[in-house]
Design a protein around this nucleic acid. Structure first.
Lengths: 112, 112
DNA sequence: TACGAATATGACTTGACACGTATATTCTCT
DNA sequence: AGAGAATATACGTGTCAAGTCATATTCGTA
C-alpha cells in the first residue's frame, strides 16, 4: 500500500503508469515519449517493478513492460473505507437541500 | 493528484489521515498516538493542508483538524480509468474458465 | 499582568532519491 | 567471432524532505 503510493508519487513514474495503461511497451518506446535518458527510465521501472506495479517480458534484447493492476486494486479497496465518508456527506447535503426547499414552500426557517 | 499522492506517500502522514477518518482531532491527540514530536506532527499537517487533505478549525489554543475528502474523490476518479482494466481481465478469466469447462465436457482442447 | 498550555515556525543536520555519465550484460545479425 | 542494439547497473553529485531542538505566537486562567 505505502510502497504503491511511494512508487506513484513521482511524476515520471506516474507518467509511465499512464503510458502502460494503453498497453505493454518496450523501454525504448518510453524513453522517447518521456523526456528522460534510458538509465533513468530503467531505474524508475525497477522501482515500479519492486512495487509490483509492472511486469517485464523478455523479447530478444528488449524487455516489454506490462502494467499489473493488483496494487491499484488494493488502492481501490483502501479508498473504499473513505468513499463512505463522502457519500455520507452527499446524503447530508441532500437532506439539507430538501429541508431548504420544504421550509421555502412552508415559509419556515430551516432548523439546526 | 500528484500532490495528493506525494502527501499520502509518507507513513506518518498516511497514519494521520487514517486517524482523521474516525473524526476530527486536535494536534495534541495525534502527537500522543503517533510516536512523533509535536513540531513534526504540525509540519506533516502543513503538508496535508497544502494538499487540501485536511482543514483546521480554531478552538482557543487548539486547532482541530478535519479530513477533507475532495482529493480522495479525485484519486477515486483517477482510479476509475484503471478499474476498467482489471474488470476486463475478470471477463477474460471468466471466458477462459467457461471455455475450460466446455472443452472438458466436450473432451476438446481449448483453442488459442 | 504573569504564566502555562497548545501549536506553529525557523535553523540545522542527515538521509534518501532523482539525475547524469560511464560501463556491464545480453541478444541479433553478418 | 565481432559489431552494434537494447537494457540494466555502479558510482558520484546535488537537491529536497524528515527529524530534532529552540523559539515565537496565541489564548485561557490565576
Amino acid at each position: 500500500m505505502l510502497e504503491t503510493l511511494k512508487a506513484l508519487a513521482e511524476p515520471n513514474r506516474l507518467h509511465i503508469v499512464e503510458l502502460l495503461r494503453d498497453g505493454p511497451r518496450p523501454v525504448g518506446d518510453m524513453v522517447q515519449r518521456l523526456h528522460l535518458r534510458q538509465p533513468q527510465v530503467s531505474k524508475h521501472l525497477r522501482v515500479l517493478s519492486d512495487a509490483g506495479l509492472v511486469d517485464a517480458r523478455v523479447d530478444a534484447q528488449r524487455r516489454i513492460y506490462t502494467l499489473r493492476t493488483a496494487p491499484l486494486q488494493q488502492l481501490d479497496v483502501w479508498l473504499e473505507r473513505y468513499r463512505q465518508l463522502w457519500e455520507q456527506n452527499f446524503k447530508r447535503l441532500d437532506a439539507l437541500l430538501d429541508e431548504m426547499k420544504t421550509s421555502h414552500r412552508k415559509s419556515k426557517h430551516p432548523k439546526r
